[in-house]
Every structure is written in structure tokens, then in C-alpha cells.
Design a protein around this nucleic acid. Structure first.
Lengths: 211, 211
DNA sequence: TAGATTGTTAATCGATTAACAATC
DNA sequence: TAGATTGTTAATCGATTAACAATC
């Protein structure tokens, strides 16, 4: 067991993929797996898998390998899938709606408790049993319900103002679909950026440079 | 000038961000910038910026720095923003609609020419002046219009079958929102994965482990 | 026990940063 | 010219891979 050690982002970014593969193994009725066999399936080295897992503890057993169910649960705990962090979503345009509808927040550590949009015309509309609220009531709502995390699906130009407001309201983490650089202004909050336009541009590069 | 050299993914993933910052500089009427000044704005080291740019050529000038307009255009060329690769989108659920509506394909190297869904009921509906077509006509459409790239916004479970079909139809690149591992089966196509559920889980981890 | 496979240390590889000669 | 800043080589840092003793 090795808690409190610094874990690199490279490792953390691989955890959800381990979690996913272990879930599949479970579904396939496989109850035990070696780092070698898992490395074959995932296209990694066995060495890397053992190193990654040992950042968090000795989950395996020499001569045996890893118990799939146990490892799945341990990684789930590490990722916090059972935490149910209260999340709000700001921006109920196409992207916000897709995120709200598409994403299984609950199985990934979050509980979506509010959706906000500046467009008064859509206030009251329901998405996944949650009413869209006017951005005007964001303050009151947060003071009452104390969300911890916010997903930002608003235009980048409106992002700074909303982030200022949300940080003041105690938001500790952002799932940021905008281009505003939250960490530059607030180095102590947790930020996960999803830059779809950056992503599609690297695809363009790859297509150009593919054999 | 150093063409044909291998460029690491680390570098390529930074290019869209350079492109974005240069665009902002242009908008602000700034015509020239040093690696030092750019590094301050972007939160990188000047050294890294110079190394990155020199993978593609000597765009700067000693004692002067870089011309913003020129550098912007050069990076645009490297990324292929003017290529207009023909793209189709498969899956017109919430996510597919958001992508189709939200994303500026044209300024990022692509031209969206077709949208497909297995749900016959929504066939004919228009998104961004493009009709949703039945997946049944995917074959004919591709043979006639020769798209190069496909965005996959379908359930992961349906992904393998569609990918098989699309690769056979000559698709060379995938913008993959599913969990199906395209590269494992087709190592020679270009793939850019967007795993939103992985992304949100790393956020959960970060929120848990933030001071 | 013998065989298998982990946990962990050591070696390698690649990416980032620092330094500086070249040069505008 | 002198000052500034690049392009590029060398040094450092971190992440991945290999090796192997520990042990189930």
C-alpha cells in the first residue's frame, strides 16, 4: 500500500481504460487475469500495468495474477465512481444537451443536479428529469444545493465570467468544453479540458500524414 | 526545413493550441512575437516552443522573433486546415447532432457531406443543411461521394460493424466517440479518440485528490 | 515442491529544459 | 555595431520497459 504518493497524469489517464477493460472481463465471466494477459488485450506492456497498479497498492498475488472483481472495485474506488459529487451543467445548447443526455454521470462519480442556460426561452424545459434554469438563479441554486463540480458547455467568450462566479460559489472542479484557460486564473481547482476542435485538428494532421 | 522527419504525438497535440493562440494574437493586432513572450502567455517554456516549431521548419528570425501572421498560416498548413477532407457523421443522436451543429468543420480541415442514422424515423430531417440519411444508403453514398473521414457517434456496441463497413468503403480516418478500439483491428487508419466517459472519470479523481 | 506471476529495482528511452553559438 | 532572439546541441528529467528476487 502506498498512499499519498504523487501519481503522474500519465498513470491517472490510463485508469478509466483499465476500469473499462476490467468491466468487460467481468461481463465475460473472467474472474482472474495476469498482467501479461491483460497487456495483450489492452496493447500495453505487462510491466506498465504492474507499475501503474502498484502506484496504488499491491492488488495482485504472485503466481496467480489479479482478481478481476477486486481490481475493478479498487480502481473504481481510486477513481471515485461512488463519490456522487454534485454537478451542475452550464449551457444547454446542443453540446450541453448531448452531455446531459448521453453521459452516465452516476456510474462515473457524479450526480447531475442542475442545468442552467442564459436563454430564458428554454427555462423550464426538462432534460433527464432536470429542469433548465435561468442563469439568473445560479447563485441562489448553488448556495442552497452546494454543487462541487461544473460542466461548462457555453461559448468560450462567456466562460471567464461564469468561472469567476462559480469559483466564488465554491465550485472545486470543472469539466471544461470551452477554450478558456481556467487553471491559468485558478491554479487550485481541478480541471479536465475537452477541446473538441483541437481534437479534430490533430485528426486532420494524422489523415494528411497517414501512409 | 525538415520535412519527412518523425514528429511525436506530444508535439502534434500542441499544434492546435499554438494555432489558437496565434489566432488570438492576430485578432489583438499583434504582428510579431518572441518565443519568450509566447511562452509566458501559453504557460510553456520558450525552449519547448522553439523545439516544437523547428520540427517543421525555421519560421523565426534571430533577434526578431516570429511573424504572427506567417506562423499562423504555416501551422494551419501543417494541420491541414485548408484540406477540406470530406467527412461523414454516423449516428445522429444527441451527441452526433451536437457535433454536427457545434463544430466548425470547415475551418478545421473538413467538409461535412453526409449524416447517417439507423433510425428510419428521423431520415430526411435536416441538420446544418444536410439531410439525415438511413444507414441503409451508406454504401451507395460513399461509393458516389468518396468521403475520407468518418465521425462515429454511435453506441460502442454497434461500432465494430460500422467500422468494418467504412474501412471497406475506403475511409482513412475516424473521429471516434465510441469505445471500440479501431487501431487494434485497423492499424493503418488515422484515429482520434474522444472518450468522454474516461475524461469525466479523471475529473472525479482530480476532485477527490485536490487540496 | 515447482511453476507462475507479482512487486520493485535497475536500465532504457523519449520528451522537456537549459545553454549557447549563429545571425538577424 | 550591439542587442535580441533564434536554431540546435547538450543536459536533465520523467516515463516506460526490462530484469529478477520475492512469494504465492
Amino acid at each position: 500500500m502506498a498512499t499519498n504518493k504523487y501519481i503522474s497524469m500519465s498513470v491517472i489517464k490510463r485508469l478509466p481504460r483499465y476500469y473499462r477493460f476490467l468491466s468487460n472481463l467481468k461481463d465475460d465471466g473472467i474472474s482472474r487475469i495476469s498482467s501479461k494477459e491483460l497487456s495483450n488485450r489492452m496493447g500495453l506492456t505487462a510491466s506498465q500495468i504492474r507499475q501503474d497498479l502498484n502506484c496504488f497498492g499491491g492488488f495482485g498475488q504472485q503466481g496467480y495474477g489479479y482478481n478481476v472483481e477486486t481490481l475493478y472495485e479498487e480502481i473504481g474506488k481510486i477513481l471515485g465512481v461512488d463519490q456522487g459529487f454534485k454537478m451542475i451543467l452550464v449551457g444547454a445548447g446542443n453540446l450541453g444537451r448531448a452531455i446531459a443526455t448521453h453521459m452516465s454521470f452516476q456510474s462515473r462519480g457524479f450526480e447531475l443536479i442542475g442545468i442552467f442556460d442564459k436563454n430564458q426561452a428554454i427555462a423550464g424545459e426538462m432534460i433527464k428529469n432536470i429542469p433548465i434554469r435561468s442563469i439568473n438563479v445560479l447563485d441562489d441554486f448553488c448556495k442552497e444545493n452546494l454543487p462541487v463540480v461544473a460542466a461548462l458547455c457555453i461559448p468560450s467568450s462567456e466562460s471567464e465570467e461564469i468561472v469567476d462566479q462559480l469559483v466564488a460559489l465554491g465550485i472545486k472542479g470543472f469539466w471544461n468544453f470551452t477554450h478558456f484557460d481556467i487553471l491559468a486564473k485558478y491554479p487550485d481547482v481541478a480541471v479536465e479540458n475537452v477541446h473538441l476542435s483541437d481534437s479534430i485538428m490533430t485528426l486532420s494532421y494524422q489523415v494528411m500524414n497517414t501512409a
